[in-house]
């Protein structure tokens, strides 16, 4: 596992989500990237149940339970700004048993699916983010496999992303800032996806005004 950057790419003007994804993947293929199957990252939201809120006298924290096809045997449980727990895949059944404390907000389920590409030592995953039946946005994940220290290879990653994302190249992810010299882990990638999904959810909640 190398260092990964997850970013959102806005839908190109006058194009659909699908068309923008195709534009991106075509650029990757022109660069020489090879298609290597598909990937999926999903995220379910859990509310802390009413009984626990009253006892602690605070608004309920949201917990996210996520899966990543890159780690098929694991399940990730995250709080916003909080710890990230990496558990076995059957953690989901435990969540069902904990119904009294955590309630699944089914309507909030969000996922990103798409194609996985390899280019030299880079892994690139371009995904369509969907919530319910509709496509909400585009995610791009770029991993540089040989490196384990996020800040060591950020410039290199950025140069690579510029080669196919152009002006939509993201700034340095906030998780990189807290890593210093410690080793990058899969949980850091999941935090980035969680942040991306939250951003896209908010965009959806506020109806886009002023476009028409």
């Amino acid at each position: 596992m190398g260092v990964t950057c997850v970013a959102q790419v806005p839908v190109a003007e006058g194009k659909s989500v699908q068309q923008t994804v195709e534009l991106l993947t075509r650029k990757l293929e022109l660069l020489g990237a090879e298609k290597q199957g598909t990937f999926c990252v999903d995220c379910e939201t859990y509310h802390t149940a009413a009984s626990t809120i009253s006892s602690q006298g605070q608004t309920g924290k949201l917990m996210y339970v996520m899966h990543n096809s890159e780690y098929p045997l694991s399940c990730f449980a995250l709080f916003e700004n909080g710890p990230c727990l990496i558990a076995d895949a059957n953690f989901d059944t435990l969540m069902v048993k904990l119904k009294g404390f955590f309630q699944n907000a089914k309507a909030n389920k969000i996922e990103s699916r798409g194609t996985r590409y390899q280019y030299c030592d880079f892994l690139v995953k371009v995904g369509t983010v969907t919530m319910g039946p509709s496509a909400r946005g585009i995610s791009v994940e770029v991993e540089y496999c040989p490196c384990v220290i996020a800040n060591d290879c950020w410039n290199l990653l950025m140069e690579f992303m510029q080669s196919f994302m152009g002006t939509h190249t993201p700034g340095i992810p906030s998780v990189f800032g807290t890593k210093h010299d410690s080793i990058y882990s899969p949980a850091d990638t999941m935090v980035q996806y969680m942040e991306l999904f939250n951003k896209i959810r908010k965009q959806q909640q506020v109806p886009v005004a002023g476009i028409r």
Binding site: C120, D121, L156, F160
Partner: peptide, 8 residues
């Protein structure tokens, strides 16, 4: 540059 043909 950092990369040339995808290699540093």
């Amino acid at each position: 540059k950092f990369l040339q043909d995808g290699l540093p």
